[in-house]
Design a protein around this nucleic acid. Structure first.
Length: 112
DNA sequence: CGCTTGACGTACA
DNA sequence: TTGTACGCCAAGC
């Protein structure tokens, strides 16, 4: 409406994130590329941080390696992982203690 | 008002 | 092949 708390770039990110189907995940790069600048992934992360405060399912957005990057923004290191598992998303056994989403199986692309 | 940081990704050396 | 630098846009200091 009248309040424009964020730039158009942020709104577009939120629109894409809100369009992610349940049980699917996407990456910062895909969102950024869909907006027109694939290198704007960092800016997408900023929008997602604000999206967490907007109530958007930002937990469905992971990095290019399927790693959960913004777990800290959810209030807990296991919140994001548990949310994705609850939606039916599978994880790959990573080398570290941090699991990675099986993007090969759940990767969703905006505009698809 | 200007520099640095930040939920990433690609390009180049 | 691995490592470093740059680019994107906005917010924080």
């Amino acid at each position: 409406m009248s309040e424009r708390e964020a730039s158009d770039f942020f709104e577009r990110v939120w629109g894409v994130v809100a369009d992610i189907p349940l049980g699917r995940v996407t990456t910062y790069g895909h969102i950024a590329a869909y907006l027109g600048s694939k290198r704007a992934a960092r800016t997408v992360g900023w929008a997602l941080r604000a999206a967490a405060q907007s109530g958007l399912p930002c937990h469905r957005v992971v990095n290019r390696y399927g790693g959960l990057s913004g777990h800290a923004a959810f209030g807990g290191p296991h919140v994001m992982e548990d949310l994705l598992r609850s939606e039916g998303v599978t994880f790959v056994e990573g080398d570290d203690e941090v699991p990675c989403v099986d993007i090969n199986q759940h990767l969703w692309v905006p505009g698809h």
